[in-house]
């Protein structure tokens, strides 16, 4: 935020296309000066601070399918790109089958902000601090993207190129996000450390997701993703390896947590120092792994 932040929004034109194609075409015709508008929670802040100054905002919220949320016990969960986080949190199906996603979404900002914020928006911002990104990756989320060449799918795990950068191209509109049915007995947790107890951005965010897997020596497959401690949302593959190789106990979990600490590459910023982030990555990873492991053992 600069001292010159505007009191109001800069000038732009609001465009409300009626079809995806129309929207895509407009974005392509105005490449570099148009941007799709979803919840606006991020766009308006950046426009006001002078960071972004697009000529057009293309409201894609009301396009077909953008507001649907559906669950099929075989195919999984599909969340339209414009479905706000509070709707996701309130959804019975999400509560029953994707508790991890619910937990991650609930940790975002405030209730009123979540009336506008969306999971897809959270992903597309590609902020290393995105609270729901870890859950989306570990749950195997895939984005459906309407682009120039038709519809394509982008797994979230490989979606990010750099801070704020994704595989999206001009004219692309993410229409929904899909999650497969979680593995039998799956458990997950999101532990977020902010400066306040709630509503803050994360200093460190740890997502852990695991399920019983008879094909690995430990009997469990447990994965871990980190927020705010690397330029991109980070999945620490070593954690999965450490926790499949041999049977799990607290020492093993600590080993995995230390692997997470070594894998992360945090920086010093106004929110916290790199040093603190590193040790917190270890401590919170350990705690999160312990929660999931204990849950899994209870099965």
């Amino acid at each position: 935020m600069s001292i010159d932040a505007h009191p109001g929004l800069p000038e732009f034109d609001y465009i409300k296309p009626t079809t995806l194609k129309e929207a895509s075409d407009f974005l392509i015709a105005h490449a570099g000066e148009a941007r799709p508008l979803m919840g606006g929670t991020d766009i308006f802040v950046r426009m006001r601070s002078g960071g972004w100054n697009d000529k057009y905002l293309v409201d894609v919220k009301c396009l077909e399918g953008m507001n649907d949320i559906s669950y099929d016990p075989h195919k999984g969960l599909s969340i339209g790109a414009a479905v706000n986080m509070n709707r996701v949190i309130a959804s019975r199906e999400v509560q029953d089958n994707y508790a991890l996603l619910l937990q991650a979404a609930s940790s975002v900002a405030s209730y009123q902000l979540r009336t506008r914020a969306t999971i897809v928006g959270n992903i597309c911002n590609a902020s290393p601090a995105g609270d729901t990104i870890g859950a989306c990756i570990l749950l195997g989320g895939v984005l459906h993207v309407h682009g120039n060449g038709g519809i394509r799918q982008e797994p979230i795990k490989t979606f990010f190129k750099g801070p704020g950068e994704t595989l999206l191209r001009t004219g692309d509109i993410v229409t929904s996000i899909h999650f497969p049915v979680p593995e039998e007995g799956a458990r997950g947790v999101y532990i977020k450390l902010g400066r306040n107890k709630a509503s803050d951005l994360s200093i460190v965010g740890v997502t852990v997701f695991g399920y019983p897997d008879v094909n690995v020596p430990s009997g469990y497959r447990i994965r871990l993703a980190l927020a705010s401690v690397a330029p991109l949302p980070l999945v620490v593959d070593q954690v999965e390896a450490i926790l499949t190789e041999t049977s799990i106990d607290e020492d093993r979990l600590m080993l995995a947590a230390e692997a997470a600490m070594h894998a992360c590459t945090p920086i010093d910023d106004v929110r916290a120092s790199a040093r603190y982030r590193k040790v917190m990555t270890r401590n919170l990873s350990f705690n999160a792994l312990k929660v999931v492991w204990k849950d899994l053992k209870k099965l």
């Binding site: 606006g40 929670t41 308006f44 209730y111 009123q112 902000l113 009336t115 506008r116």
Partner: peptide, 10 residues
């Protein structure tokens, strides 16, 4: 029916 931050709604 749902609360929003009216500063972030057009």
């Amino acid at each position: 029916g749902e609360p929003v931050n009216s500063c972030l709604v057009l």
